[in-house]
Structure formats: structure tokens, C-alpha cells
Design a protein around this nucleic acid. Structure first.
Lengths: 340, 340
DNA sequence: TGGGAAGGCGAAATCGATTTAGTTACACGA
DNA sequence: TCGTGTAACTAAATCGATTTCGCCTTCCCA
């Protein structure tokens, strides 16, 4: 099939060892020979087999991605999918491919770590999974280069949005439109992202001197419109109703819109709502969601860069936490309050 | 690191060859030895290195996926992403992993085919790309097992929806609600899917004895809300305005909704519209899209099954074209006509 | 002139499997 | 007793690279 190092060595009249050294920049090869080998390689379209190379060197130029569809909605997940795509494309530009580390790859019954070692990936990105999972802990304790997205594992690199500042900015925007009675439905605790956002919310409220009604802080989950619908339904039944409700994410917010519609309330005329993420398809729907756009492209890119750096520069020092700015999108689901 | 065949052979007191044969079902191994090897393998958690195995056998247990983000919107694409996910999960259940064949993998400058041979994938799924591309043709002419999604390459297996019947069903639904003045904005021609859908539309119209107004058949593209918005804008400016417009897909249909809103028209009260695909997130938005849901899960699964079959049973005969039923979703964007 | 250093290259081991081609040991028939 | 066949196993080649070590020329200098 493809041309091997042996073919090339014969074509050049040198040994395979010399070819390998010539192409890998060894010093004990004359400039003359190196050039001959390089041009011949070019002409014949020779590329060292990644498989043979991996066998000998242990490097596969593959990055494993822990992507557990069960905990999201797979490749269509409005946050993880664009992050994955950016991660992939940045990794590729460094010569690395992506391969998936799925939970207990079916019949094989391997843990994340076993699977990673089995496939000999050079590094792992923990993208989308249950961070409480023992398998994730095991993976984290390994010596593999690793980065997490959107959640912290002790001692490991993590890339995530500036959740606190993002939520604070959203809250200030809502306040600036005259809202005082603001409810907050948060995503799962104690996820770091959830804690940060809640902190940002409290900070903005405190900054404006508005007391927070503890009964208006409600738990829900990310990406679960049904759960969010129930939480919002309860809020709408409070004796005093909030004028604005902040929701865990854009997708979950669809449940909030549904709950409002079920009560005969219009958004934003009768009640304001906001999401988080900045899901692009929802930006095209009406009413356009007021939200905080996460920089998925940036998150994926920085995660890939961190991994490549960890692989190629194992001793180097790196920040453990990389914060990526988020951006407020002033949509149509939060409107100005027109007097008490 | 991981335990190798040599370790295992020493643990069992036999040669590596015997271990390999015992685990691979060769006949010249005694039942006694086979059992000893198998239990030891189990106990020590031995797994043959896929890399070493690939080097020797040429089989990587990897399936290449041609996924060109440029021609879609990457992993967030509302049709390709769920298909990819299903393909991946079905492939995994057969022991195959997915790896991406990207266009000209950056600096490497390889064609799809070269890349596939370089990575030694066992088969290729052409999922999302420009089918006119010379590289795709080259790939198609190769002897690699191959399957396409949603478009036909001569002599190659293809999995796609029952587009004709799906569109006919949608059209009949629209007609049953009293519509006679129906416009049709189609996706790119001469894509087979587009042709089939157009055919289904014509068939349903003819079946109801309704003449088709040629000026109301408009070209656009898939997944391009802006293009579709322009096409719809023109339709809305016709002297006689259609009462319903069928659009290339759900995502493109968002452009149609926008055009209607810009003209001050309400959907569906003033004008009806329908999409195609059944994008799940849009089913949660209001107005809920009337559309034809493609069975992405089925398409991905059947594509994976076809590839596995082609790999493991090269001489077997197979249908070239697999049609997967689509399902009408009666949403809220098409309403009944209340008299002329 | 002889010894050491340096330059340039190749032989061979290695990574971890598979697979072909033997090699034993033993039984059996002539 | 010898040859033959068979069951059960192993040695060794192989896949396609990388890398260590050693060899052979030159060349330089004392």
C-alpha cells in the first residue's frame, strides 16, 4: 500500500536507519544525504506510519476525550459540542487527532483510565461527564496529561468561563432595566461553575443594594427544561411574583418559557427571563434569548493548547485555572420595568 | 505500563505464540492450555495492544468519518451531529472507534484518501462534505469499505431518509388543512435528497389535483437561514401570495420566520410554514415547527452496521441504498385555512 | 608514522502483537 | 524396529518505524 521507510531507503541507496535519522533531524547525517532523503520523501509522498511509530515511541498523537453522552445530549449538546469542535480543530493544527474515551466501552468493560492506556492516548480532556464518578477520580490521579472543562479536579488544569463576572454582568443588566424582584434558578451544586455564577449574582445584587429573597433561589439542573419548568412554575405561584427569573442555561430556559406560557404570561411583557450559554440557534428564535455567551471556541482552543503544552513540555509550569471571558447578550427576554 | 503478551506468556509458562493462538481460537491448542491462558488473561487484565495488532494485521478497528465543518456547522449541525453520535455508538458496540478524516489535515496536506490510508482506517463514512469535491470522488473510487449519508456516490452504499415519501406526507398534511397555494423553497440541486423531496411534493400536489405554480418553486440552500430569508421575502412580495411555504430544513426555516416577521406577518395566522429534519431543540421553541423528523438515530446505526458488515464480510452482497422512514410532526407553524 | 578524534553511516535490537514453518513427543501400523 | 501421522507447542519472521551502539574512513597532530 503506502510506501514504507524501506522503500524509501532503497530509493535513496541508504539504510532505513539513515532515512529515519535524516528525517528526524539527527546530527550524524551529512547535509548532502539529508537533502537527498528529504527530496525523495517529498517526491514519493512518504509518511512514517503513525502505527509503527506509536509502537516504538509510545506516542500516538491522539488526544482522548471523555465524552459521556448520558450526562448531556451528545454531540448536539449546545455547550459541549462547540467546545469539542474547537478542541478538535486546534488539536489537529498541532498534529493531534481526537479519539473518544467512552464509559465502559461496551463489552470491553474498561474504565476511563484503562481505556486511555489501552489506546495509548497522549493526553486526556475531560469534557463532559459526571465529575463525582470514581472513574474520573482514578483518571485524575494518573500521570496522564489532563485538562478539564467547566469543572475543577484538584491539582489538574481546568479551562472554564469567567462565570462569576459573566453572571454579575447579566444581573447588573437586569437591575439596570429596573428589576428588583429577581429570582435565581441555579444549576447543580456543588459544581464550581454553579457556585461561581451564584456568587456573581449575589455580588451584583449586593452591589446594587438589593436584598436577595432566599425563597427565590431555587435548585434545578443544567440542560433539563422539564426540571426548570417545575422550578419556574413554583416561582410563578409565589404570593409575590418575581419580575425576572435567571435560569441555569438557555436550553433549560425553554422550560421556563413553557411554564410562563402555561400560566398565560407573556415573556418579556409580563415576566422577564434570562439564560446562560448563548446557544446560537436560540439566538435566531423569537423572542431572542437574553443570555451570557460562553466563548466555546476559546475554551476548546485553550484546552487543546494546554494539553499539547503538557505533552510536549512536561516539566514546564502552567496555570491550573484558565478563565475565559463571557459576553452578555442583551436579547428580548428581559425588558424594562415600567414602574411599580 | 500495561501488561504485554510476553508477561502473560511467562505467567502461564508458555510461549507468546501459544498465548496469541489460545486467545484467537486456533485449533492446535489444547483445551487445557487455552483455559489456563484465558483465565490468566482475565485475572491480569491483559488486552492485546491495538497498535501492535494493527501493525501486524493492518486492521485498526477504526472507522474514519469525513466530516467537513466548513460545509455545515460542525458538531452542532442539527442533522449531522445526531447521526454522527448514533454512528459512533453503534460502531463502538462492534468494537470500532471513530476517527475524523478532516480536509487537508492542515500542514500535512493530505487528501481524504491519503489520510485514510495513512491512518489505516478500516472503513470510511462520508458524512458531511461537498460531494462534488474531487477528493471525495477519489475516496469513492478506492477499495475501502465506504458508506455515504444523505447523498449517493455511484456504486457505493448509501443511507438516507425516505425523503420522497416524507415530503409527500408533509404536503398532504398541508393540503388537508385547506391549503392550495403552496410555495416550495428547495435545498441545493442536484443533491439526491433535494430531488427526492421535490418529487414527493409534486406527487402529493398532483395526487390532490392541485396545479403547481412554477414561480413558487424557489432555490435556496440547506442550513442557510439568510438565503432562505431572501427567498421567502421574494415570495411574500408576489402579487398573489402563497398561504403556505415549505422550506429546505428547520434551521433554514428560521430565516423564513424572520422574513415573515419583517413583513408584519404572523406565523401561522397570516402565513403557514414548514421545515424538515425535526430538530429537537426547535420542537421546544414556540411556535413549534411543523416538520418531518428524520430518524438520525436509525440512519447512523444503519450506516455503522453497513460498514461493519462490509469490513467483516467483504464478499457479501448488500443493498446499495438503505431508506429510513421519516415521520411527520404536526407542529404549530401550519394552520388550517379558514375559507377563501 | 601511529594514535585519537570526529564524521558519517549501518547493523541490530526493540516495541507487541500475528502467523508460518518447523519441532518435539508419542501412538500406531507394517 | 522403523517409518508415519498427529497433537501440541515453539522459534522465528514480520509489520514499520526508532535508537543505541559499533564500525570504517578521514583527518589532524605529536
Amino acid at each position: 500500500m503506502a510506501i514504507s521507510i524501506k522503500h524509501l531507503s532503497e530509493a535513496c541507496g541508504v539504510s532505513p536507519s539513515t532515512v529515519s535519522k535524516a528525517l528526524n533531524g539527527y546530527a550524524d547525517i551529512s547535509e548532502d544525504t539529508r537533502l537527498r532523503v528529504q527530496t525523495a520523501a517529498e517526491k514519493l509522498g512518504y509518511r512514517p506510519s503513525p502505527i509503527a511509530r506509536a509502537l516504538k515511541t509510545g506516542r500516538t498523537y491522539n488526544i482522548g476525550v471523555v465524552y459521556n453522552e448520558k450526562s448531556g445530549s451528545g454531540f448536539t449538546h449546545s455547550f459541549f459540542a462547540p467546545v469539542l469542535e474547537s478542541l478538535k480543530s486546534e488539536a489537529e493544527s498541532h498534529g493531534y487527532d481526537i479519539s473518544f474515551i467512552t464509559p465502559h466501552s461496551k463489552a470491553l468493560g474498561m474504565s476511563y483510565l484503562t481505556h486511555s492506556l489501552y489506546r495509548k492516548v497522549d493526553a486526556v480532556c475531560v469534557l463532559c461527564c459526571d465529575f463525582e464518578d470514581a472513574e474520573v477520580r482514578q483518571l485524575s490521579r494518573s500521570s496522564l496529561p489532563l485538562v478539564t472543562i467547566d469543572e475543577v479536579l484538584e491539582g489538574r488544569c481546568c479551562v472554564m468561563s469567567q462565570n462569576e463576572e459573566g453572571m454579575a454582568e447579566l444581573t447588573r443588566h437586569v437591575i439596570s432595566l429596573g428589576h428588583r424582584d429577581i429570582a435565581y434558578v441555579h444549576g447543580l451544586l456543588p459544581a464550581v461553575a454553579s457556585v461561581q455564577r451564584l456568587k456573581g449574582f449575589h455580588a451584583a445584587m449586593a452591589g446594587a443594594g438589593i436584598p436577595v429573597n432566599p425563597g427565590w433561589i431555587k435548585p434545578s439542573s443544567y440542560h433539563r427544561p422539564n426540571e426548570t419548568r417545575e422550578a419556574v412554575r413554583e416561582l410563578l405561584k409565589s404570593p409575590k411574583r418575581p419580575t425576572c427569573i435567571l435560569l441555569p442555561d438557555d436550553y433549560a430556559a425553554l422550560g421556563g418559557l413553557e411554564a410562563a406560557a402555561a400560566e398565560g404570561l407573556r415573556v418579556p411583557e409580563d415576566i422577564s427571563m434570562a439564560g446562560f450559554d448563548g446557544v446560537s440557534i436560540l439566538q435566531m428564535c423569537r423572542p431572542q434569548m437574553t443570555t451570557v455567551a460562553q466563548d466555546c471556541e476559546g475554551i476548546g482552543r485553550l484546552a487543546a493548547q494546554s494539553l499539547v503544552d503538557q505533552i510536549e513540555n512536561p516539566q514546564g509550569s502552567r496555570p491550573l485555572l484558565v478563565h475565559v471571558p463571557a459576553r452578555l447578550i442583551k436579547g428580548q427576554t428581559v425588558c424594562a420595568i415600567t414602574g411599580a
